[in-house]
């Protein structure tokens, strides 16, 4: 897989307060298997926090796909799933 997985963590006030503030060190907390494949950045309010139908904050986008109530664990899992998809293999074997 050549392209990096884009992880965009919303750091608008709502997301920041509800938990994104604790995710700001995620780049350093990533497991080694993911580090070369993931690019993490912050983002201004993604504009989805106003509508409860989008789920609960904090929000993030992984390769443009919106995820709600994200945690370090759920973001790592989402990245792993994309990696498996592109390799057709289990992440541990990557």
């Amino acid at each position: 897989m050549d392209e990096l997985i884009d992880v965009e963590i919303c750091t608008g006030t709502t997301c920041f307060v509800m938990g994104a503030g604790h995710l700001l060190n995620l780049a350093e907390e990533l497991p080694a298997r993911l580090r070369p494949h993931v690019n993490i950045c912050g983002s201004h309010c993604l504009g989805v926090c106003g509508d409860p139908r989008n789920g609960r904050p904090p929000f993030a986008r992984v390769n443009r796909m919106l995820l709600s109530n994200v945690s370090a664990e759920s973001l790592i899992e989402a990245c792993d799933r994309i990696l498996i998809g592109s390799k057709g293999d289990r992440c541990d074997a990557v």
Binding site: T11, G12, T13, T14, F16, V17, M18, H44, C45
Partner: peptide, 10 residues
């Protein structure tokens, strides 16, 4: 701040 709809960044 969330309830008041104030985004600090803005």
């Amino acid at each position: 701040l969330i309830a008041a709809g104030i985004d600090v960044q803005e």
